[in-house]
């Protein structure tokens, strides 16, 4: 018996569809050229309508196909700025990294949870600038429960980062830092790599060292 020519199929390869290989899709780097595909205008502004977060100067305007702003309304809470630099193992700024944040609203509820602030998306994305800096405008998160300290979850992506690096940003001097179940799992001598310092006007600064003496603590989630 022969198969009709229109019904013939190539032999299956050992590939994505092989049931014997079924499991987590492996991570790969974002590479250096993600700016026209990922960080949209407004992605780093969780409070207002600015175009923070994108790097539209890196490609022609006609090829900007991402969102134009983060339409949020005005969330409840104290407006803050999160800023810092991403640095490599030699202390050099990383101009082609991308940071994402995920955080609770002012009452400690995540977007999608019952009673969460309808004007707060909780998620932001910012490409680093040429000097390796990132900047978000957001609100000070509330504690997510008794015993937890206010914090912001961070993801770091970039050329040379095969995997997303996950960490947290805590706020210097906040009640609960000592008891927080994640921060207290970090060796005492490395905790400072997760604690942003205040510089007045609601600006909180935390550098992210990918490697080296003050290497940021990254998590195995």
């Amino acid at each position: 018996m022969t198969i009709d020519v229109a019904d013939r199929r190539p032999e299956p390869r050992v590939d994505n569809q092989d049931p014997a290989l079924f499991g987590q899709t492996p991570s790969q780097t974002v590479g250096p050229f993600f700016h026209y595909g990922l960080p949209w205008k407004g992605g780093a502004d969780l409070v207002g309508q600015s175009d923070m977060g994108a790097r539209p100067e890196l490609f022609p305007e006609a090829h900007y196909v991402l969102n134009q702003s983060s339409p949020t309304g005005t969330p409840v809470g104290a407006v803050i700025e999160l800023t810092g630099r991403v640095l490599d193992g030699q202390g050099a700024p990383v101009p082609d990294a991308m940071i994402e944040i995920w955080q609770a609203d002012a009452a400690g509820r995540y977007a999608g949870e019952p009673g969460s602030d309808p004007h707060f998306v909780g998620f932001g994305r910012a490409a680093t600038a040429e000097d390796g800096s990132y900047r978000f405008r957001t609100i000070l998160p509330g504690a997510i429960g008794a015993g937890h300290a206010p914090h912001v979850a961070l993801s770091v992506f970039g050329r040379g980062l095969i995997k997303r690096l996950a960490t947290r940003l805590y706020f210097d001097g906040q009640a609960g830092n000592e008891a927080d179940p994640v921060l207290s799992a970090v060796p005492v001598e490395r905790r400072a790599t997760l604690i942003a310092t205040a510089s007045g006007d609601g600006v909180w600064t935390l550098d992210i060292a990918l490697q080296g003496e003050r290497e940021t603590v990254f998590f195995d989630l």
Partner: peptide, 26 residues
């Protein structure tokens, strides 16, 4: 992959408990 030499963390990632921060998403 040369760029990993100065950008990859050298400390092993720290295993931490997952909380609602890690189990919720946008």
């Amino acid at each position: 992959y040369g760029s990993t030499r100065t950008r990859a963390p050298l400390q092993p990632p720290l295993r931490v408990p997952q909380t609602r921060t890690e189990t919720t998403g946008p």
